[in-house]
């Protein structure tokens, strides 16, 4: 059962200042099966966010193709939920209405989408904040809303673009643990972009290391779940896997 198939994907930009073409992504092929948790890790400029934006349909690809359950992707769509680094919550909507936005676009009646939204707020531990506005929440809480909003739309793939990069270190660890718990409960397919090696290893089943727009290597992460930082922090297997990925990233 294949969920997402990326074949020979490439992206070429024209850099108007340099007056030349830049190959941001070069021939990336990748298979992500349903229910898998994959991390894409690499230094800035390695093309990881460009890849995610192409999967999300925000930017067109220059070559190759992306298929979701056999269907080619054209433009953004509700089958691919996105969690943004900047949270991208709608400031003029309450937390409840933010989470209920996807169902609203599908024409789900108000009472039903409120119920769905409350269920997903419960999942991320924010049931009490339903009637607040995003600017009244901390960064960590805002991103919980972002995750709930994406999940409430029941996407086939969840695309996460450095979602925890703009929260403080302690909150980040909590969010990472919560995400692994949610993944275990619901088994969404997740593609997670990060430049943080330990984050990638902590979360994923499989870490893909990118370099200069190409896949350098991939590492399977067979660590047991549930994963919590208190245990993994000093875990020998975690350390050796992190070390291995870090070496790959540094050689990139």
């Amino acid at each position: 059962m294949r969920s997402l198939t990326i074949r020979d994907l490439s992206k070429t930009y024209f850099d108007a200042y340099a007056g030349s073409h830049v190959d941001a992504v070069r021939g990336v092929s990748l298979e992500v099966t349903q229910g898998e948790f994959v991390s894409l890790v690499g230094p800035s400029g390695c093309g990881k966010t460009t890849i995610l934006n192409m999967i999300a349909g925000f930017i067109p690809c220059s070559g190759g193709e992306i298929r979701l359950d056999g269907r080619a992707i054209h433009g953004p769509g509700p089958d691919r939920g996105v969690v943004f680094q900047s949270f991208a919550l709608f400031p003029w909507k309450t937390v409840l209405d933010n989470v209920g936005f996807g169902p609203k676009m599908r024409g789900v009646p108000k009472a039903e989408r409120d119920r769905t939204a409350r269920e997903y707020l419960e999942l991320v531990g924010l049931a009490h904040a339903a009637d607040r506005y995003p600017n009244e929440l901390s960064g960590g809480m805002q991103q919980r809303v972002g995750v709930a909003r994406a999940l409430a739309n029941n996407p086939e793939v969840l695309l996460m673009d450095e979602p925890f990069a703009s929260v403080d270190a302690q909150t980040r660890m909590t969010l990472q643990e919560e995400l692994t718990r949610i993944w275990q409960e619901r088994r969404p397919t997740i593609i997670f972009i990060t430049h943080d090696v330990s984050e990638a290893v902590f979360l994923a089943n499989r870490v893909i290391v990118l370099s200069k727009g190409q896949i350098l290597d991939e590492v399977d992460i067979a660590l047991p779940r549930p994963r919590v930082w208190d245990k993994l922090h000093e875990d020998a297997a975690f350390k050796s896997l992190s070390g291995k990925v870090l070496q790959l990233v540094r050689s990139a």
């Binding site: 999300a56 953004p76 769509g77 939920g81 943004f84 709608f90 936005f101 996807g102 599908r106």
Partner: peptide, 28 residues
């Protein structure tokens, strides 16, 4: 912000809904 429009699009909003739900309130 373009991210808000992208967020709406990836949640299934049509161009018209992006206008009414995102661009107009954002420009308010």
């Amino acid at each position: 912000p373009i991210e808000l429009q992208r967020a709406a699009a990836s949640l299934g909003a049509s161009r018209w809904r992006i206008l009414t739900e995102v661009i107009l309130p954002g420009a308010m």
